[in-house]
Design a protein around this nucleic acid. Structure first.
Lengths: 219, 219
DNA sequence: CTATTGGCTTTTGTAGACAATAGTCTTACA
DNA sequence: TGTAAGACTATTGTCTACAAAAGCCAATAG
C-alpha cells in the first residue's frame, strides 16, 4: 500500500481559506470592508474558530488586515503598494529565468504554449477576461519552470494581491489593453528567447516585457 | 489627542507567535518534533484556540508543517531547501540594491555602520554568536534601505528560516567561519560600493559576497 | 446649543467541552 | 510463531458559551 494516491481530506479551515479568498478576489467584499466574523460564519454554516484561523492565514497572505480588538477588514491597495508588488514580481521572475534557462526538456514548455494558445483564442474572441487568465497562466507556468517551491509560493502571493487590486479597480477600462495581439506577440517572443537558452536575452526580454496592466497611474 | 502615540496592546495570538517562533529558532523544539497542542497550552498557560491560530501563522511562515489530523511539527530543512532559501535571498538583496542605490541621505547608512562596528568587536572577541548577529543585522538593514515593505517582509521570512536551519545544524563547526576579519572586510567593501552609488558595482559585490555559512554541503 | 459622560449594543478574544480520527497495543486465529 | 483484526488511547477538529473591549447613542450639564 501507500502508492502515493492518498486522497487529501481538506479541513474546514482549508476550504474556508479558499472560499474567502475567492470572494475577496471577486470583489464580493470591497476594499476596506469589515469582515464581521459572525456574519461570515452564518453565511458559510460554520463556527468561529475555523473562520478565525482562516482569517489569520489571509492576513499572512496580505489580503486582509487586522487591528487588535477591531477585527478584520479587506485591505485597500495604494499606488505605492501596487508598485511594490510589481517590482517584487519582476525580481522573482528574473530569478525564475536565471534558474530555468536553459530548459532541460522541451516538454516542460508545453504549459507556456497552451497559455499562448489560449491568448490567441481570447484575442480573436475579444474576450478580455480570458486574455487576462491566459496571461496569468503563462507567467505562473514560467515561474514554475524554475522548480523552486518558495519562489513559486511567493509569486502566487503577489499574483493574488494583483488580482485583488484588479477587483478594486472597478474602473479598469479594458484593463488598459492596447492591442491584445501585441500581448500575444510579446509572450511569443519571450517563449522564443526561452527556447533559445540564453539567460541574458530572456532577462532582457522580461525587463522590457513591462506588463503594467494594473497600475492606475503610469510611473 | 490622537498624536500617534497609541500604544499597541498585543493579542495573545501575537505573543504566542513570537514566543513559539523564538523557541523553535532556539532549537528548543528540534527538527521534525511534533508540537502537541495541549502540552504547549499547558506550558504557556493559554487555551487551544489562540495557540492554533498562532500555529497557522507559523505554518504560513514556513517554520512548521501540518498534516491533516496528524497535527503540527517543526519542519526539517533539506539541502535543497537551503539552496532555495539562498537563491531567493540573493534575488531579494539584488532588488534591494537596485531600489536603494544610490542612497539619498547618508544618515540611512548608519545602521549598516553600526552593524560593521559590532562585527569588529565580535571579531576581536572571537565571539562567533555576536558575529553572526551582526551579520544578520547588516543584511536586514541593507534590505531596509529599499523602503519596500513587502520585500522586507519576504526577506525576514527567509532570515528566520535560515536561523532555523542554523539551529538544526548542531554541527555547525564555528558556522564555517574561515576568518572573521575576512567577513568584516567583505561587508566594509560592500558598504563602500553602496556609498559609491553605482548599482552595478553593488550588485556585482553582492553576487560575489556569497555568504553560504549555513550550507551543509558545498554546491 | 454644544460638549461630555454614562450606559448600551455589537463584536472580538478566550476558555472549556465534545466528537471524530489516527496510531498503537493486545489478542485471537491460522 | 506470524499475521491480522479489534479495541483502546492519545490527539486533533470543531462547536458552544462566556468575558472583555470598542464604538455608538442618548441624556444631562454647562
Amino acid at each position: 500500500m501507500g502508492e502515493g494516491d492518498r486522497i487529501a481530506i481538506p479541513s474546514v479551515v482549508d476550504v474556508v481559506v479558499d472560499e474567502l479568498r475567492a470572494l475577496i478576489l471577486a470583489g464580493t467584499f470591497g476594499p476596506g470592508e469589515r469582515l464581521i466574523e459572525e456574519r461570515i460564519c452564518e453565511r458559510f454554516g460554520i463556527s468561529r474558530p475555523p473562520l478565525r484561523e482562516a482569517l489569520r492565514v489571509l492576513q499572512r497572505e496580505g489580503l486582509v488586515s487586522s487591528r487588535p480588538r477591531r477585527g478584520y477588514s479587506v485591505i485597500s491597495l495604494s499606488d505605492d503598494d501596487v508598485r511594490e508588488i510589481y517590482s517584487l514580481r519582476g525580481a522573482l521572475e528574473r530569478l525564475a529565468a536565471e534558474l530555468a534557462v536553459p530548459v532541460a526538456d522541451e516538454n516542460a514548455l508545453s504549459p507556456l504554449e497552451e497559455a499562448i494558445g489560449a491568448m490567441r483564442t481570447a484575442a480573436s474572441d475579444g474576450d478580455d477576461s480570458a486574455m487576462l487568465a491566459a496571461n496569468v497562466a503563462f507567467h505562473s507556468a514560467f515561474v514554475a519552470l524554475a522548480d523552486h517551491s518558495r519562489l513559486q509560493q511567493s509569486y502566487e502571493l503577489l499574483r493574488s494581491q494583483l488580482q485583488l487590486c484588479m477587483a478594486q479597480n472597478l474602473r479598469f477600462r479594458q484593463h488598459r489593453t492596447g492591442d491584445p495581439w501585441d500581448v500575444v506577440r510579446r509572450h511569443e517572443s519571450l517563449l522564443e528567447r526561452v527556447r533559445g537558452g540564453d539567460v541574458q536575452e530572456v532577462v532582457a526580454e522580461l525587463a522590457e516585457h513591462g506588463d503594467r496592466s494594473f497600475l492606475r497611474q503610469e510611473q
